[in-house]
Amino acid sequence: MRYIELFSGIGGFRKAAELLSYDSNIDMHCTAFSEIDPFALKTYGNNYNLNGEARMGNIVEFTSEREKIQQMSNFDLLLGGFPCQAFSLLGKQLGLEDERGKILFSIHELLAQKNPEFVVLENVRNILKHNKGETLNKILNFFKEHEYKYVNYVVLDSQNFGLPQKRARVFFVCSKKELSINLTENNIIDNFMNINGHSLNMYENVLEILDKKVDDKYYLSEKIKHTILADGSKNFKSKSQIDLDVARTLTATMVKMHRACQDNYYSDDFILNNHSHKDTPKEILFKKPVRKLTPWEALKLQGFNKEFYDNAVEAGVSGHQLYRQAGNALSVNTGYALLHYLFVKCRIQDK
């Protein structure tokens, strides 16, 4: 099965497809990808065997030139996580009025000319409620107008697929054929739990992610600790907790070190002795060694392995950029679970 990966980032969908191809009898081959971030491209280029596939670059510019689309190889499946900042609860939620929100519809000509059999796209869960459901309706109608007979979506959370991170994302699934599959999270979870052998990295809880010893630079200084661990400020009240068994959703801006109500922080007592300070009074907690995630741990929480991290570092990608890339990435296990359900369990390509 030939596929392309749009808005690829560091290739969460591609890694999922590669592992699925390795684990099953489904031969998945990438023929093109698009990404504009130069640092993500470094990580991508040093981790995948780029052998002749089209490098589409800026998808808006690429799809504005019909000749470029015509020169592409045909493909069966379009994968991608289209820009989510326009719909995120952490952003201004301008949605389709935001240039980033309009990018999805830039693939119109690509769908019209190449007519892929299947489309699987990912975005933040908030897109379902954005603009009182109007945004969702526009997206669903967009694919129906391109003659996709099956257009559906499902919300999947990474913590249900062997990655201890609360990360709920919506996945849109479109097919040129009428499908009778029951696309629910429970069915996808049940199928995932019954897979006999796979190449994914799986963790029971965040303690299996955290390294026992890390560089001192990851520890909170005494000066910043009071801000990070505080329960908000005069105009912003929050419940700050550390040492959570399941990590909060990683964000692309975690390098800025948000308060502990948004980001993930861990004490040495938790990491070394499994003694949680989740509900410890702040005046005691201020005296404890507390640190943030390392870039490697952030990538682990998204399902990437040590070789992937080492290859990125070898390519000259900084820790700052690796945090950003991990926060933007598709969780490998979640992508794998969905693709396995669609193409191995339900065999939608054979219907």
Rank of each mutant, 00 (worst) to 15 (best):
K166S: 10
E97Q: 15
L128E: 08
N47F: 04
L183Y: 09
P83Y: 08
R125V: 12
S175K: 11
Q262S: 13
F62K: 07
L272W: 03
K237W: 03
V317F: 14
R324P: 00
I4D: 12
N235Q: 06
K217A: 00
V246H: 01
G57S: 02
G91A: 11
L183W: 12
I195D: 03
V120W: 05
D350R: 10
R100G: 08
C261Y: 11
N25R: 14
E65C: 03
S106A: 15
S24C: 05
K68P: 01
L110D: 07
R2I: 05
E65V: 14
K15R: 15
P295I: 01
L79N: 05
G197W: 09
L301N: 08
N186I: 08
K177T: 13
T184R: 12
Y150A: 02
K42E: 12
F87C: 07
L183I: 06
I189G: 05
Q165F: 03
T227M: 00
Y44M: 03
K287L: 10
K144P: 03
N311G: 14
G52V: 04
D269P: 00
N274I: 02
F75A: 00
F142E: 01
Y44Q: 06
L128P: 04
G57M: 07
D98S: 14
R55H: 08
E53T: 01
A247N: 09
S318D: 06
P295W: 03
L272P: 04
T334S: 14
D268I: 05
F286D: 00
N126Q: 14
F142V: 13
V154S: 14
D215N: 15
G101T: 13
C346M: 14
K176Y: 07
H29I: 10
L90A: 15
Q85L: 08
N25Y: 12
N305W: 06
E67Q: 13
V173H: 11
I271G: 11
L220K: 03
D245S: 12
R167Y: 10
E145R: 12
L339F: 13
Y3N: 10
L299Q: 05
Y341N: 08
N46P: 04
K234Q: 12
F105Y: 13
K138W: 01
K102I: 04
T251R: 11
V170T: 12
L272V: 04
S233G: 00
C261H: 11
R167T: 07
N186G: 00
V154L: 11
H320A: 09
I189W: 04
N205L: 01
E204Y: 07
F304E: 03
T280D: 04
A16F: 01
A168Q: 13
K225A: 14
K300E: 06
T31A: 06
V170S: 08
S34K: 07
H198D: 14
K234T: 13
Q113P: 02
L299K: 02
E18M: 07
N160K: 15
L338Y: 08
G197T: 08
V290F: 04
L244G: 01
K102N: 02
K287H: 10
M56F: 05
I284L: 15
F75E: 09
K176T: 07
N123L: 13
L90E: 09
N186P: 00
L41M: 15
I189E: 01
R291E: 09
C261M: 02
T253Q: 15
Y203P: 11
V246K: 04
